[in-house]
């Protein structure tokens, strides 16, 4: 007869070991199941029936634990040899309340091969931080039926249509528009420079030429220069009186805005009469202009004293009617913009 001798302590130890192993296995299985249930990949397509070359939308959604690194399929521009990705739209990333992250990516796809075209299960994967084992999940496969247009063989066969020209967009035209407008602008600039150059009115280049003295200074300078020329002393009475009246008429035109250059003696006197000019000075000017008319149009040769006095009367007239310093400042400002000097 065999007797089995049982050690109670040993039995108890063995039982505990088995229990712990079973518990660990159970925990592992539960954890894995939870995690696997959390990650999920979905595929959705607009329609399963398309015509050759028709474009449809494909949506891929992948849910994975937050903070994981993911492996996304569809890195090339084709899904299979017969299904092409036309465009990839912007992806949406959503953080869900259960701690998972969803990435939704939409593609525009098409196929040019007729018949049933299968999108195989697409494999997604993620790798959690501090973990070396990647977890994978797959979408379901999808079927797209690509149909060719039905040909009505009873109808007349027509020639193949030529390719349609796509309308040009603004952005395609923009570089050309910039080039054309730049060219027109350049031509205009060249024309404007040439025009002002021909007119002798290049404002920047001729700045110094355009500075004009105030009317009274210009007249005084002219009269002084005339005195220095000693014209009447050399018998040039006509030239002397012509220049003198030209200076004084131009002065009247600038100072009083009376068109004296285009007026006769009597017209000038009539026009300056209403102005507040010293009567004596005005009357002497009248005498000078009348004498000048005689010299210019009737061969008169005045006495030396008359010739000298005439110039002096003109100087007196300018001095008497010259603007006050306040007026001069205003006039100076106006003259800076005067671009057509007559002298």
């Amino acid at each position: 007869m065999i007797y089995y001798k049982f050690d109670v302590n040993m039995m108890r130890e063995t039982y505990m070991k088995n229990f712990l192993i079973r518990l660990l296995v159970l925990i592992f299985c539960l954890w894995t199941g939870v995690v696997m249930a959390q990650s999920r990949a979905d595929i959705r397509i607009d329609t399963t029936q398309i015509r050759t070359g028709e474009q449809i939308s494909l949506l891929l959604e992948y849910r994975f634990p937050k903070g994981s690194k993911i492996d996304w399929p569809l890195k090339a521009d084709t899904i299979t040899k017969t299904i092409e990705i036309v465009r990839k739209l912007k992806a949406d990333t959503i953080t869900n309340s259960d701690g998972l992250t969803s990435i939704r990516q939409r593609y525009i796809i098409t196929s040019f091969d007729s018949g049933p075209q299968v999108i195989p299960p697409l494999r997604f994967g993620y790798l959690m931080q501090g973990d070396s084992t990647a977890m994978y999940t797959e979408t379901e496969a999808a079927l797209i039926m690509v149909n060719t247009p039905e040909v009505d063989t009873t109808q007349v066969i027509k020639a193949i249509k030529s390719p349609l020209s796509a309308p040009l967009s603004f952005w395609e035209l923009l570089p050309w528009l910039i080039r054309i407008w730049s060219f027109i602008g350049l031509v205009l600039i060249v024309f404007v420079i040439y025009y002002y150059y021909k007119k002798g009115r290049l404002p920047l280049l001729n700045q110094n030429k355009n500075v004009r003295l105030p009317a009274d200074d210009e007249a005084m300078l002219g009269l002084e220069n005339l005195r220095l020329k000693k014209l009447w002393q050399n018998g040039y009475y006509k030239l002397y009186f012509s220049e003198m009246t030209d200076i004084i008429r131009l002065y009247i035109e600038r100072r009083f805005d009376v068109m004296a250059v285009e007026m006769t003696t009597e017209e000038i006197m009539t026009n300056i009469k209403p102005l507040s000019i010293n009567k004596e000075v005005s009357s002497k000017l009248h005498e000078v202009l009348q004498l000048a008319d005689l010299v210019k149009f009737a061969k008169a040769e005045p006495m030396p004293l008359e010739s000298d006095l005439s110039l002096q009367h003109c100087i007196d007239f300018v001095k008497e009617t010259a603007p006050s310093p306040e007026d001069s400042k205003e006039e100076e400002t106006e003259n800076k913009t005067d671009k057509n000097p007559k002298l």
Binding site: L294, A298, K299, A300, E301, P302, M303, E306
Partner: peptide, 11 residues
């Protein structure tokens, strides 16, 4: 003052 011929003509 006026040239002789013009003066005569004027007169």
């Amino acid at each position: 003052m006026i040239h002789t011929d013009i003066k005569e003509l004027n007169e």
